[in-house]
Amino acid sequence: MAIITISRGTKSGGRAVAECLAKGLGYPCVAREVLQEAAEALGASEAKVREKLTTPPGPWDVITRERHAYVVAVQSALASRCVGGNLIYHGLAGQFLLRDLQGVLRVRLVAPMPLRVQAIVGLHAHTTHEAAERFIRKLDRERRRWVRRMYGVDLTDTSLYELTINLESIALETACLMIGTLARRPPYETTDAMLARIDEFATTSRRHLQAIAGGGR
């Protein structure tokens, strides 16, 4: 049992590694579901929640702290998914949303630009390589800015993760196998003490959300 977060740029193989891990370890694998639950809790649309977790905050957000409510809602939804101790999360900002929870295995995947461009072009035949690369660079830039503004750190800083894997030379299956091996070792293997910490974290996150929702947004 373990909680694994997978951070990656768009089209860097994150979903494939997450699904491979879920199959190998028999854990649930979530990403978008967490945003949907957060949206439901806030009475907002999923698109709105996604926007708040991807586009860099502006000065207005800093004054109103409106964005904070969305982040807390997603954190609360993710925390409740962690209860029980088995989870692979490959959605947005997992390494930050669970940063107060000890024992989480935080993985970052990096992939070379040509591979990422090919993944988009392969899916959308009408997209040129140049357009795909522009799209990827724009998303990467926005995500880095979001993290910088929200948490004051660089998304690509390897010290934020237990493990960073470069999929240029490591096959997806190998990455999956290595992460799976690591997940079964201490301190990532879920113990009774960790289960208790997860319960406490989920309760705190839920109360935090209730306090914010109760206080109006």
Binding site: P112, L163, T164, I170
Partner: peptide
């Protein structure tokens, strides 16, 4: 990180 196959944090 692209200079390496893996970066391992022993924290």
């Amino acid at each position: 990180p692209t200079l390496y196959d893996m970066v391992i944090n022993v924290a």
